[in-house]
Design a protein around this nucleic acid. Structure first.
Lengths: 219, 219
DNA sequence: GTCTATAGCCGGATAGAC
DNA sequence: GTCTATCCGGCTATAGAC
């Protein structure tokens, strides 16, 4: 049965991602990828010109996935206003709780599937060393920061707060913190990282203040 | 001229490190390593049993280097008491300045030689995926945390302060922060990470209080 | 378009002369 | 101990039959 070239590309990229996650970038050879996809070796070059090209597509695929996950999470978080937003008093505490829960959920996902985040970092490093993948890593991280910025904005809105530092700065910090926590969780899966969260979350929330619904600042 | 087996091992490990830093772990083949060391291919297996074994030695070599660098830095920092330690007032500010300067110096070293830190992270990830290198990554990071703990203790001493959280917790947080900043600097070398430091350093220093030279707590 | 087959290269590791 | 020469396997990529 004949399938479209686009379909082929998608299947191969998905297979490549599975191999990267399970066995690492180094093991993601063209042979391993086509085997994972249940295809013949020669089929590969009908869909992609080179191994680098499919790796580039894998990064795009993952970022796309993160985008959808984020969008869904934001929609769900915004949905139930039943909890009632604390306008004045609960604001900072709520924002801290949201921040902590989000970072904690991310960390839990690393523990649940360590290969995934390790694979992504391996892809990033591969991209940094491969001229044919120039710009991929920078683009990947720019997207990450953009997604984090959206989450930050939504969180502040939900908590009735306002960030006092540029969103891009906060997003950069959070992406860095996430990467650091990721490495820590990969290297030492049994370590308790809760105290690290306790340390870092207040530093982030310190960059927010209660939002003013009406202008209160004297002219 | 005949050289001892130990000498051979050292030269090969040093050559391997140079290749890893310059070209990445994937490029650090036995052939590339012996070429870098100016040796013949067959000489390799007189010194090491396998490629994995020399990679293990490279990690040991780097950690050893960090240890010496740290020791030297601590000796120098402790040397000039001319600046006079601020016992009460300047304590927190001094500790913040020390923390910031140390993290800033680390970041500068990443910018000066990105391949080095990328290579080390690549080695860590390789170790995590290679059964023959089991435990190497965990050991490497345990050593890192130990060194950071020493620096933390020395910094507090110098500033007349006392950490209020377990040193191991703080060290774990700082290693994570360093890794996160490293990835950020590698992916986007032009980005300004000063605001991130501004955000994180206070969170660390918040875990310290002025040290009491004499017991003042009522009995 | 899809397969088999293979070119051509590079990798780790070792054999065997000296 | 030190070299040259090589084995053998896996890799990317392509040629050529169907």
């Amino acid at each position: 049965m004949r399938v479209s070239a686009e379909q082929r590309r998608r299947e191969l990229a998905a297979a490549a991602l599975r191999v990267v996650v399970r066995d690492g970038v180094a093991a993601a050879t063209i042979r391993a990828i086509v085997a994972e996809a249940g295809m013949k070796l020669a089929s590969f070059h009908y869909a992609y010109r080179s191994r680098d090209e499919v790796l580039r597509e894998v990064v795009r695929l993952v970022v796309e996935g993160e985008r959808e996950t984020t969008a869904a999470a934001l929609a769900e978080a915004a949905a139930p206003p039943a909890s009632g937003r604390a306008d004045e008093a609960g604001g900072p505490e709520l924002l801290a709780a949201l921040t902590r829960r989000t970072l904690g959920a991310y960390l839990a996902s690393v523990h649940a599937d360590p290969g995934r985040e390790q694979g992504m970092l391996e892809l990033t490093f591969t991209a940094l060393r491969t001229p044919e993948l120039e710009g991929v890593a920078a683009e990947q991280y720019a997207q990450y920061r953009g997604l984090v910025a959206e989450i930050l904005a939504a969180g502040a809105e939900l908590a009735g707060m306002r960030w006092t530092a540029p969103l891009e700065e906060l997003a950069r910090a959070i992406v860095a913190i996430s990467d650091g926590l990721t490495v820590a969780a990969l290297v030492d899966p049994d370590a308790d990282l809760e105290p690290v969260l306790d340390l870092l979350v207040p530093a982030l929330v310190a960059r927010a203040e209660p939002a003013l619904t009406a202008e209160r600042i004297p002219g």
